[in-house]
């Protein structure tokens, strides 16, 4: 990695289908991934609802973009931080989230989980180590 690589954190705080924020954030991540930066995603507050498994939008006539999170590993986006307190406040746990994995190039392409559940305090620390934070 060159010195020009910056740490980018995309902060997701909105539920998936009521507004366009979540989908727009994901598109920005996919486009931004072309620029070889150190990209990670954070899910807190209602943003944790974006990752629930079993989403089916057929009856509301909008695109179900939840499968796209599983493609992020192909885009070398391998860290999705999910805030434990936000999950708990919403009656959710890590088991309610879809499985998202990436293949670790440095470990013989072993499949590893992308979702990392972190505490609110850890989330604050993660935010504090970024060069750029983009909120949605």
């Amino acid at each position: 990695m060159s010195e020009d690589v910056k740490k980018f954190l995309y902060v997701n705080r909105k539920a998936p289908y009521g507004t366009i924020y979540a989908l727009e954030a994901l598109e920005v991540v996919l486009i931004g991934a072309a620029f070889d930066q150190d990209v990670s995603l954070a899910f807190l507050d209602d943003g944790v609802f974006q990752l629930t498994s079993g989403q089916d939008t057929a009856a509301i006539g909008v695109k179900n973009f939840s499968p796209t999170f599983r493609a992020l590993g192909d885009y070398e986006v391998t860290r999705l931080y999910v805030e434990r307190e936000s999950l708990e406040e919403r009656g959710l746990s890590a088991e309610d989230l879809q499985e998202i994995t990436y293949e670790d190039e440095d470990d013989d392409w072993a499949e590893k989980p992308s979702i990392r559940v972190v505490s609110r305090e850890e989330m604050a620390a993660i935010m504090a180590e970024q060069d750029v934070i983009l909120s949605f």
């Binding site: 072309a34 499968p67 493609a71 192909d74």
Partner: peptide, 16 residues
């Protein structure tokens, strides 16, 4: 790929 992930991959992702 589209069926599985609901996106058309970027070219470098496709190649990989």
């Amino acid at each position: 790929y589209y069926e599985e992930y609901q996106i058309a991959p970027a070219v470098r992702v496709l190649i990989k």
